[in-house]
Nucleic acid binder design. Structure first.
Lengths: 126, 126
DNA sequence: CTGTATCCACTGGGATACTG
DNA sequence: CAGTATCCCAGTGGATACAG
């Protein structure tokens, strides 16, 4: 994935801009962690979201992935990274106001996913 | 990707249902084509969306991918597949009413992607 | 015409070991 | 503590050839 999530290749005739924008979004949102991390941060706006704490609280993620994904969020202006004056150093992350603009989209995905599970279950049962 | 897009492994303590639902959605929407195909079908509700025609009009997709992706959409009740009585046979696809429920989400992704491009461009320029 | 089968290059992401 | 480097495997998607 391009770290700075912008796509340059414009080719299709119909609604090229929209298609590319949609692919930008999909690309940025794809993968196991980024949306989940943003939701995590948004649910704890006041707290110090330390790397270590996130690592412990978010089940299943490795330090490598947490670091990588947070860096991508930071490069896309969705999260901030703050090095604290501790020894040894600790790092706190927070969602940006801009990052909060994806939350409604994320909630839409959650909502649709929940309904989709019901739909599939109901259809299979019948 | 699981063809029938439902996930069974519930483990996380916090909001497990929501997380899993979100991942279901992300998984289903990920990849280059599925959302684009749904939008294509939704923009041509009255027409016969023949495989051949789609193959020609959707830039860059191969027959293999078109077939595979449409099959996934069909298995998730998002699109229908109709074999026509022609010689040789032709096949028409259509979005289902259920499939249309994702369109608002897709539009949200498009909208956010468009704004993100502006944001990134503006930030880089400054 | 509408797919499926095969082959292949590329990427995402886990495990682990290591550095500042 | 926070992050990087390396290795590895599974999955995605393109090209091509083939089948019903």
């Amino acid at each position: 994935m391009a770290t700075i999530n912008i796509r340059g290749d414009i080719r299709e005739a119909t609604c090229a801009e929209e298609l590319i924008a949609m692919r930008d979004s999909i690309e940025l949102f794809s993968g196991k962690w980024k949306l989940q991390l943003l939701r995590y941060l948004s649910n704890r706006p006041a707290e110090k979201n330390l790397f270590k704490k996130m690592l412990g609280e978010i089940g299943g993620i490795s330090a490598r992935m947490l670091s990588k994904e947070l860096k991508v969020l930071e490069m896309n202006f969705l999260a901030t990274r703050t090095v604290l004056n501790t020894r040894p150093i600790t790092v706190a992350y927070a969602i940006t106001p801009y990052g909060q603009t994806i939350l409604p989209v994320a909630e839409a995905l959650v909502q649709w996913g929940l309904e989709h599970r019901e739909k599939v279950k109901a259809t299979i049962a019948s």
